[in-house]
Amino acid sequence: MFAAQAFASLFSSPAKTSSPSLASDHPTGGQAAHHAKPLFFTTPHHLKLTYFPIRGLAEDIRLILEESGIAYESENISFHDWHEGGIKQQRAADNPFGQMPILYVNKGEFILSQSKAIIRFIARSTGLDGGDAYSAARCDQLAEGIADLRRQYATLAYDKEFAAKVGDFINKTLVNSFTTIERVYDQNKTRYLLSQDRVSYADIMLFELVDQILALGQDARSVVAKFDRIGEVYKSIAARPRIAAYLASSRRVVAINGASASVGAFKA
């Protein structure tokens, strides 16, 4: 009984005996009515985000922090210092998987690695996951689809046969993935994933992915232009005041990928 009650308490609507229809059974008709009150960042916290001096896997996190209005310190570690300068070994206790980005809360009182874990931690703490289990699951579903496409994009970016493979990626992989993502937004009848005006972390992830895809050139831009709903999300996110200010600032990292990439490469 206790376990059932605990599970039911995750949801903002009463427990049901059958699987819920997100369109009808969700208390807001499948849309989050508001952001939940922040669960974690209700008192001042010092945040430090550590990563390479590229957008890579950290830019989603930066954008989500910017949209949330949460101040943070950005620590950029060079590729040389991380791989050959001993910092990776020095930070071994901070990142059990041996990877960045790493988020430090309150000078190391809480440390979290793995980009998607950091994203979801911040989203849950600020309401950018919709604030209830149904909405969070919908965000997670879209975010995983976006992450799948981003992994394929990153694989291409570092492929030595980039020039020979980029056409297939744009005309097949990108078209197929964007068709699916576009369908998700079409089903919602709202600008963003969960509502007309309130953005979710998955919407922000889509913005950054599209921005990285556009760096592939005119053929990629032509494909993106065919997807109206994705384009609407992209333009709307770019125009949000906090994100627009960040994009126009010197804090916005220019390089997308590492120095060995064929697109958006870091230049020392």
Rank of each mutant, 00 (worst) to 15 (best):
Q89C: 02
G131S: 08
A239P: 06
S13W: 03
H26I: 02
A6H: 06
V175S: 02
P38D: 06
E84V: 04
G130T: 11
Q5S: 10
H26M: 06
Q152T: 06
Q141P: 00
P44I: 06
A23N: 05
H35G: 05
W82R: 12
D140T: 08
K88M: 14
R124V: 04
V223C: 08
Y185Q: 02
A23P: 00
A147W: 04
P241W: 10
L247Q: 12
E66P: 03
A23R: 14
K189H: 15
L39I: 12
M1T: 09
I54N: 00
A244C: 09
I122Y: 07
Y234W: 06
L209F: 15
I146N: 03
L112C: 08
L216H: 09
A92F: 07
K16W: 00
A33F: 07
F2Y: 08
F40N: 09
D129E: 15
A143F: 12
P53C: 05
D186P: 00
F41I: 06
D168A: 11
A202W: 03
I111Q: 07
I64G: 02
A33Q: 10
K267S: 10
F110Q: 12
Q5Y: 11
A33R: 10
S9V: 03
Y158W: 05
L193F: 08
A133V: 08
D168G: 15
Q114T: 04
K116C: 01
R198I: 09
A225E: 13
H34N: 09
A202L: 02
L65P: 04
L47M: 11
F162W: 04
G130M: 12
F97V: 12
P20I: 09
I230H: 04
A215H: 14
F227R: 02
E59N: 10
G145P: 02
I181N: 02
V254A: 14
A8S: 13
R252Y: 15
S78T: 15
N106L: 11
R252Q: 11
